[in-house]
Structure formats: C-alpha cells, structure tokens
Design a protein around this nucleic acid. Structure first.
Lengths: 230, 230
DNA sequence: ACATAAGGATCGTTGAACAATCCGACAAGA
DNA sequence: TCTTGTCGGATTGTTCAACGATCCTTATGT
C-alpha cells in the first residue's frame, strides 16, 4: 500500500514533466530562429521572408509573425513596417552601450563574489583555455560568454541574468560580422583566468578595477575593428 | 538658388518625420493596452479575452495576438498556454528582484551625477513636493517614478533607460494592488529632495549610501504590505 | 461525496483573400 | 546622360472563417 502510493506519485510527476515542456508553435518557432541567428545561419542585415520561412518550417504566416514578435524584444530582429523583418545590425553606438551596461552590471556582480560561488566560472575559464590550446576559437568565444553570464549571476538577480543573456546574444551578432574572431578572444583567455583568481582570493576591489580595464580594452578593440554593413 | 535648396531640404526632413511615427496596428494596440494597464484599467490577475478586446478595439484576433506578444516581454502580461493572457501578478520574489536590479543600476548612476545633469530630477522632485502638499498621491507616485527614471539616465545608457522604464512599469503593477499608496510615497518625497541635494553638492559617495538605504527601506515597506492575490 | 462524461467557451493555428506599400524596371522628358 | 514618372510584381499587414485541441464548468451516475 505504501509502495502503491509511491508508484502513483511518480507517475503523476512524470505527467507534470510532460506539461512543463509544452509550448505553443509560435514559441517553438522563435526558439528555432533564435538558435539559427546565434549560430550565424541568419546573418545581420538579412531579411527573414514570411513566405519562405513559413513554407520551410511548415507553419502559417500568422504563427510566424507571432514568433517574429517574440524575438523582436530580444534585440535580435528589427521590424520595418511594410518591408519585413531583418536580423539586427548593431551600430557602433550599440556596441558602446552594450559595454556601458556590462560595466554597470558585471562590475557590481564582481563585488559580490564568494569563493563557493565560483564553480561555474572556473569551469568556463578552463573550457576556454582548453579550446584555445586546440585553436577552437568559436568554442573559446562560447566559453567566454559563459564566463560573463556566470559573473552576472553573482548579482543574484533573475532579471539581470535575463538581460545579460540578451546582451550577450546581441554581442554575438557583432562577432558574426567580424572577420577574425581569434584576435578578439585570445587576449581575454588569460584575463578571464586572472579575474577568476582575484575573485577566488577575495581581492574584490582589485577584481573590479581589472574588469573595468578589461571592458575598456575589449570595447576599444571591437570599436576599432567593427565595420557593420551600411 | 541656394535658398531653394535649403527649402527643399527642410521639406524632405519633415516628410521623414511623418514616416517615423507610422506604426502597425498591432503596435498601436499594444500602446493602448500598455496605457490601460499602467492606469489600472486592466488590473493584475485579470484575463484579457481575445474575443472581447478584439471586438472592443475593432481588430482581428491575429492582430491582437501580435500585440499581446509585444507586451509579453515587457513583463506586463503573462501567457498561459490554452488558457489565455493575464495581466501579471508580481510575486514577493519579483519585488525583491526589482529592488536588487534598481540598486545595481541606480546606485551606479548616482556615482556619475554632475550638477548640470540634474535639471529633470529637480523638476520631478519639485512636482512631487507640490503634489504631496495638495494630497495628490497618485501624482506623487508619478513624480517619484520620473525621479528614478532620471537617476537611471545619469548612466548614459539607452538600454538601461529602457530596462528601468520596464521595471518601473512592473512596480506600478505592485502599487495597483496596494490599498494605501500614500504610505508608500509620502516618506520618500523628502528623501528624494535629500538625494537631489547630495548629488548637486557633489557628495556622491554619500548619495549612493543614502540611495542604498532608501531602497532597503522602500523594499521592506513594500514586502511587509504587499499581498498579491493567490 | 466523489468520479466520470459531456458541453461550452476559448485558445492556437491554418489558409484564403484583399488592400496597402515598396521596390525595381522601363519609358519619357529635359 | 540624368531625372522623373508610371506600372507591375512581390510582399507585408490585416481580416475573416474554420477547425482541432484544451480547459473549465456542469450534469449525471455510483
């Protein structure tokens, strides 16, 4: 009888799991498009045709339009009335603003670092170092984004985590335009390690100053080289 | 001839301005709904019926669904699959997170205050004081929100301004649930004045500490009294 | 009282249709 | 040759009708 109750309980939980993953078609289409943009399949400036994509994905235009609206607020798409939807091309001002926000959020986060919260950051740093040693620069970039998402999480705010996820997705659009990702990722592998060790040692003021300098350098490097199509 | 060119130039620019303000019906519907939520016409927890609102506004359900998607990301609406769209009810955790974000953003902003940038803040403080003297507590709340949007603007970041606009709209949902807005606005009229004067005097460290204490107090007051419907 | 089935309301999606807008190609005029 | 105007085609934005799926409420049976 106690065993019977446990079996029913487990079955009910499995049904709940099924419900958690249900989503509307519009949301699933948005997921697909989000991934395709992140991996560079759809490139900055490209127009997303309702007709073509609706046909390719086997969904109606209305559903696709809902999906486009879902992505609009994430800074990935730009709607132009009567002309369609385009993958965003970030301006130099956008890049500058991205870094301004990152300074505010990530420098605040670093001041809250405790050694027991650094596990995921350590992992990202190690993954980045490994990928760099093997010349996998795309993977270095990915590990770097994880490192910064991890820093943000030190703030302990869901909203800031969500915002940073979006900012890093936008930044990825910037990198898609760049010709040589190695030059933007390579210098920062060692600096991520340095930041991590400063935080682990509790030298939080120093970590914050180092992170601010890091952003100054990263921004200058990017602004110097970023050439969005006009 | 040189005069003719100048006249044509001006006329072309005016036409561009007309184009700037054109928007799709879905966007205009979202604007209307956003205002109606902000003013409390649609209240937290209320379900927004596609049928009823579509009929009332004279737009099709598809257009309305697009408008709902536009508002979803602003934290004003909550989609529930197969059950409809509801005006968000913020949880206590939401309130706590809102204040966490505000501390990060607004305390960073205060450190950047310069006397020549304080005009709009001064105006908001004065409007708030005037409204309080006349017992217009809703207007006090509005002036308070303007003051804080003004603080955020000191960061000089469009993205942070947009984020704060959204956070303050969410906070307004919290106030709609509260029974006595006066008790939440009154103590902060004088504290806004104090913050303003500290910034004007260049005492930025002190202003930042005062703002952090302000948020601790405001959050505690709100968390103590906020009772969202279950 | 509890469980089950049925009915109604509504959401999610599809597809067709039409009006409006935009862009490109081409022709005409200076 | 360059500029302007016109037209046609492509596409977007919106509406409408329809249908299946889901959820909630109500009714019925045990």
């Amino acid at each position: 009888m106690c065993d019977d109750f446990a079996m029913d309980d487990v079955a009910a939980l499995e049904r709940d799991r099924d419900r958690l993953s249900r989503s509307s078609t519009a949301e699933r289409v948005a997921d697909i498009l989000r991934e395709r943009i992140a991996e560079g399949f759809f490139t900055p400036g490209q127009r997303l045709s309702e007709e073509a994509i609706g046909t390719a994905l086997g969904v109606s235009r209305n559903t696709l339009r809902e999906a486009f609206r879902l992505l609009g607020h994430e800074g990935l798409l730009r709607h132009q009335l009567n002309r369609g939807v385009f993958v965003r091309v970030l301006s130099l001002e956008d890049v500058t603003d991205l870094y301004r926000v990152r300074r505010v959020i990530e420098c605040s986060a670093v001041r809250r670092a405790t050694p027991d919260a650094l596990g995921p950051l350590r992992e990202a740093v190690e993954d980045g170092e490994r990928a760099a040693a093997e010349n996998r620069w795309r993977d270095v970039g990915t590990a770097n984004l994880r490192f910064h998402q991890g820093i943000t999480r030190l703030n302990g705010s869901q909203r800031l985590d969500d915002l940073m996820r979006q900012l890093l997705a936008e930044l990825r659009l910037v990198f898609h335009v760049m010709r040589n990702p190695r030059s933007f990722h390579e210098p920062f592998v060692a600096r991520n390690r340095e930041l991590l060790e400063l935080m682990a040692a509790g030298e939080l003021d120093k970590a914050e100053r180092e992170l601010a300098a890091y952003f100054d350098d990263a921004e200058a490097l990017l602004v110097e080289a970023y050439r969005p199509a006009p």
